[in-house]
Amino acid sequence: MANDRLRTAMLAANLTFEQLAERVDAHPKTAERWIRDEVVPHRTTRHRVLTVLEAREADIWPSLNGVARPTPAETEFVHLYPSRSAITGAAWQELLAGVEDQMDVLVFSGVFLVEQYDLVPLIRKKAQAGVRFRLLVGDEKSEAAQQRAIDEGTPGGLEGRIQLMRRYLAEVAELDGVEIRTHGTTLYNSMYRFDDQLLVNPHVYGALAGQSPVLQFKRHPSGTVWDHYLKSFEQVWRCAKPEKGEE
Rank of each mutant, 00 (worst) to 15 (best):
I150Y: 13
M191S: 00
Q147G: 07
V105A: 11
L11F: 14
Q102H: 11
E100M: 09
G110W: 00
E32H: 15
W92A: 03
Q235F: 12
A12P: 03
K141Y: 12
A73I: 11
L164G: 03
I35L: 02
V172R: 00
F233A: 02
L158S: 06
A9I: 00
F77P: 14
K29R: 13
V120I: 10
N189Q: 01
A207G: 12
V67K: 11
V78K: 09
L11N: 11
N201I: 05
R33A: 09
V107K: 02
Q211T: 11
G206M: 00
T185M: 14
P41C: 05
R161Q: 06
G130F: 00
G157E: 04
K126V: 07
E243D: 07
G110T: 01
K244D: 14
V225F: 10
F194Y: 05
V107Q: 05
S63K: 10
P202R: 02
A86D: 02
A97D: 15
Y188K: 10
V49I: 09
I123D: 05
T182Q: 05
T16K: 01
L122H: 10
G153P: 03
E100H: 13
R148H: 02
A90V: 09
K126L: 07
T154K: 15
V204N: 08
E57Q: 10
Q235T: 14
P41V: 01
V120T: 01
A21F: 04
D196M: 09
A170L: 12
E152P: 08
D195G: 04
A21S: 08
A240D: 02
P242K: 01
S85F: 14
T71F: 07
V107M: 06
V114H: 11
E246V: 07
Q163K: 12
Q211S: 15
L80K: 10
V214A: 06
E152H: 07
L122I: 09
A31H: 10
E76G: 00
T182Y: 00
P82Q: 05
K244Q: 14
W34F: 07
D227M: 09
Y229T: 01
V114G: 08
D25G: 14
Y188R: 13
A31P: 09
E100Q: 13
R219D: 07
G130A: 02
V114E: 08
A91H: 15
E246S: 13
E18K: 13
F108G: 09
A13I: 04
L164D: 07
Q116V: 06
A91F: 11
R219H: 13
F194G: 04
A55L: 01
Q146V: 06
A127R: 04
N189G: 00
A149N: 06
